[in-house]
């Protein structure tokens, strides 16, 4: 496979085409991933999420520059929602990272959520692996934290950062219910705006209630991303978390969990596809449906007999 060799030799085009294959679920994606897999597991994966308008892309841009200044190479996956009406999307995160475009140590890829609910987390996870195998030291996965699928995406990260801004009003309740528990580090962006102190206080209270039993108490860092203020401190917090999870076996445990989840998902998806293919292509599905309709058979019996026939060998 040339594309794998090219990717491992540093071809950005090969990397880009690989991510396309993953995204579009081309058949060759499985083969590519198979060959890339041994080369993964080196990068620090940072998930960045938060409500719309929180300044996640600007934050990503500034963090990426900070890591570049430390001599690390950076990969960025920026996920934006696909329009449910047209299936199209405007992927607008890149515009806030234009100054990184010509830095050879940075690779940015925008992805649309494309309607596939479970599939997205799997695709972003594979895209992260492609960047990892390419040799990126730090990989950002940036996504709007509004739903379960986004939460699943950031689960692919070693460290998850939640970005908030003052002035969200009652939204803090929603955050409490949703993304509070996934944050390893919190950043309050636009900290020069009114309400930043109040937000910090509220957040502290919630984390204190939530975190009595936990060993890692998520820190809260105030940032003005547009001016780069607080970015170095934020990097320090992220590093601290990374060291913590490495030293306490948390990273190992998280990656173990992740591998397990990925394997199970892959297995389920593959088995499902295998069985579906075999009964759809042969036209047997229609026969089953007829039988069920006429009550000559029932779904439970059919599934059992299919499993016996197709899998137990």
């Amino acid at each position: 496979m040339d594309i794998v060799k090219d990717l491992l030799n540093g071809s950005r085009l090969a990397l880009s085409r690989t991510i396309t294959a993953i995204e579009n679920e081309y058949d060759e994606a499985v083969d590519i991933m198979k060959e890339l897999y041994p080369h993964t597991g080196h990068a620090f994966v940072l998930g960045i999420t938060g409500p719309p308008g929180a300044g996640k892309s600007t934050m990503t841009d500034k963090l990426a520059r900070a890591y570049r200044n430390m001599g690390k190479t950076v990969g960025i996956i920026a996920v934006d929602p696909t329009s449910p009406f047209s299936g199209g999307a405007i992927l607008g995160d890149r515009i806030r990272m234009n100054s990184l475009t010509l830095d050879e140590g940075v690779f940015i890829r925008s992805m649309g959520t494309r309607g596939s609910l479970g599939g997205l987390s799997h695709k972003t996870a594979d895209a992260v692996k492609a960047l990892d195998a390419f040799g990126k030291d730090v990989i950002f996965v940036e996504t709007v934290g509004v739903g379960q699928s986004e939460v699943d995406i950031v689960k692919a990260a070693d460290t998850t950062m939640v970005v908030l801004i003052p002035g969200m009003g009652d939204d803090i309740q929603a955050i409490k219910a949703g993304i509070l528990e996934i944050g390893d580090v919190f950043a309050i962006n636009k900290a020069d705006h009114d309400g930043a102190d109040k937000l910090q206080m509220e957040l502290n209270m919630m984390l204190d209630l939530d975190g009595e039993m936990k060993e890692w108490r998520p820190p809260i860092q105030k940032v003005i991303a547009s001016q780069g203020e607080g970015i170095n401190e934020l990097v320090a917090q992220l590093d601290k978390h990374y060291s913590y999870i490495k030293e306490n076996g948390v990273l190992e445990q998280r990656r173990h969990e992740r591998t397990r989840t990925e394997l199970m998902e892959l297995l389920n998806a593959s088995i499902g596809r295998y069985i579906t293919n075999s009964i759809v292509k042969t036209g047997r599905l229609d026969n089953y449906l007829e039988d069920i309709k006429s009550r000559a058979n029932d779904p439970y019996t059919i599934v059992r007999s299919l499993l016996d026939e197709l899998l137990v060998k």
Partner: peptide, 30 residues
Amino acid sequence: RALRDAGFEVIYTGLRQTPEQIAEAALQED
């Protein structure tokens, strides 16, 4: 916007892009 509404994925890079930036973004975004 019209391309989005036609079902395309659109990456908009904003003003003042040099040819080098455009080509590189095209590459990374495939």
